[in-house]
Design a protein around this nucleic acid. Structure first.
Lengths: 308, 308
DNA sequence: TCCATTAATAAAGATTTTCTTTAGTCATGT
DNA sequence: ACATGACTAAAGAAAATCTTTATTAATGGA
């Protein structure tokens, strides 16, 4: 006998287990309307009512009750099988992240994690030790507001301030305060725009009193990585997040043309959400702990650097 | 934990149970390619190989073996639940059939079955005691070749010959043999065209020696029911299946303008296939027996009528 | 060893399924 | 009596799934 209506049976079992179509939909990641449609389709096919619907929730009909123990057992066994398979995955961690954060913050540090966990294979934004796989990533990092998931953490807020090449810093240093921006192109980043409190050049000029005609003009970049290529090439000065350029500052490849106190914190933060099922895998748990530790270090270091 | 990949797990369990993707596909009513894609998608998602593929079939990998007992148990439980639900259906029988056969052969007889089975509700081609439901019909009747299903039977072949209204028969009888077709419109049916041996007017004229210029001309009808409306209205003569017009001949509403021996059997037959799961329901089993009995009566009656 | 046969699969496109959204209904609680 | 919350019908969008075609690979027989 062919079992059709697998998704219908799943929605049905969940609706009974949780007591409402609303909760079943939430559990399955679909709307209540979709959950209801799945069950309705099965009822239409069978010519049976399976649920008694009410404002206070739903209950199985007598007809469904006769089959319910088997249905529940079926999905319990399936959940066990899925869990066994999931734990057998090759030790891979798939990450979808803000591209600047991945390139500038995570990648330089990932070797530290790998040194302690040589068997873990990474795929970050589709690139890494293994190819992209069908299905959800194990975790996602974004710059923005919380999304309210269960396994969600704030990593760190960033500190925005002007950076430049060493050459431009030297030339700026030889000028009077009033003249330090005139004559130097300003580079702008679009990636902080979702944060209403994140400063760009116009805000920075207003806040710190430098004189610059048309502070909003200049080349715009979607991402920090591309903008930094321009900075390395002496194209101009850029306001970006300090957390993303620590290594370049320490190596002397980039410089701070103005005092470090002349910056501002972002309102948004880098945040991470792990898939609930992923976080139960030992390596993903370890990666999460490591990530929170390293982010804590970054946050502490930023606070230390920018202390008044 | 959300169980996704339900269809993949089903294909996987069936592939292991049957030993090949080909057999799994057949069982599920999909192509082997589709069965393979389902399983491949799950392997991609998990980053695990689940099957060892070989020309002599497939075997589970070690990783899959760890979960296989649970997976098998899950689908056994689900099959039990589905069976319980299926047997609880309201006593409905859904039929998809050749429309002429349904209207002209089944409907006049269905009251006989219902007299013996008053609780059974029928839906024939979407019309009847209950509305059409989502999902497969319990059985399907077609005019044509066998399809090779497990629960498939031949009902009867039909006997094609000219029929007309009583008025046209009277006029034809008053004419010499040579003149009996001239001056009378010939009506044609498209619904027998799939049968290469089924005769139409051109073949009938050739076989029985009547004179008729342009025997292939005349009005064409897709179905017998519409053509009969024209025959009732003295529009012309029609070659159609004797089995479908027994009642009309007996009631005098239709006549045979030529000897009954001047006809020919169809090559194709009316055939029925029941869904395997449907046939296990008691009422469907009873309907099947009844249908085969009534069809046997029709076949015997036709043979008796047309015996030389 | 070679060839025929059979099963599996990649890729592309078609088809079907499933989901979201919107608007409405109904029951319950205040 | 009204507001609220859960469910649902319908329509359209999005995603999933399937078919088809061509190819590959393995196996068995000559």
């Amino acid at each position: 006998m062919i079992i059709a209506h697998l998704k219908s049976l799943q929605a049905l079992e969940l609706a009974v287990r949780t007591g409402s179509l609303k909760a079943a939909g939430e559990h399955l990641g679909i709307t209540p309307a979709a959950a209801g449609q799945r069950i309705k389709a099965l009822e239409d096919y069978l010519g049976l009512d399976l649920l008694v619907r009410g404002r206070s929730g739903i209950r199985p009909t007598r007809e469904l009750s006769a089959a319910l123990a088997h249905l529940s057992a079926a999905f319990r066994e399936m959940e066990t099988a899925a869990k066994i398979l999931d734990f057998q995955r090759v030790h891979e961690i798939h990450v979808v992240a803000d591209t600047d954060w991945a390139d500038l913050w995570l990648k330089p540090r990932l070797s530290l994690f790998k040194a302690e966990n040589p068997n873990v294979l990474f795929c970050v934004n589709g690139v890494g030790d293994v190819p992209m796989r069908v299905g959800q990533a194990d975790c996602e990092i974004w710059f923005g507001e919380p999304r309210g998931g269960a396994e969600e953490d704030e990593l760190f807020k960033d500190y925005l301030l002007p950076i430049s090449s060493p050459g431009i810093k030297t030339r700026v240093s030889g000028l009077t305060s009033a003249e330090r921006l005139e004559g130097f192109p300003l580079l702008h980043l679009d990636c902080y725009r979702s944060d209403p409190t994140a400063i760009g050049w116009p805000q920075w000029v207003n806040r710190y009193g430098y004189r610059k005609t048309a502070a909003e003009r200049g080349i715009r970049y979607a991402h920090v990585v591309q903008a930094l290529e321009a900075v390395y090439s002496d194209v101009g000065m850029l306001i970006c997040g300090l957390a993303l350029v620590q290594a370049q500052l320490e190596s002397g490849r980039l410089s701070l043309p103005f005092p470090i106190s002349q910056g501002a914190w972002t309102g948004h933060a880098y945040r991470v959400a792990f898939r609930e099922s992923a976080v139960r895998r030992a390596q993903v748990g370890q990666f999460r702990s490591w990530l929170l530790d390293m982010s804590g270090e970054t946050a502490a270091h930023l606070r230390h650097q920018t202390a008044a």
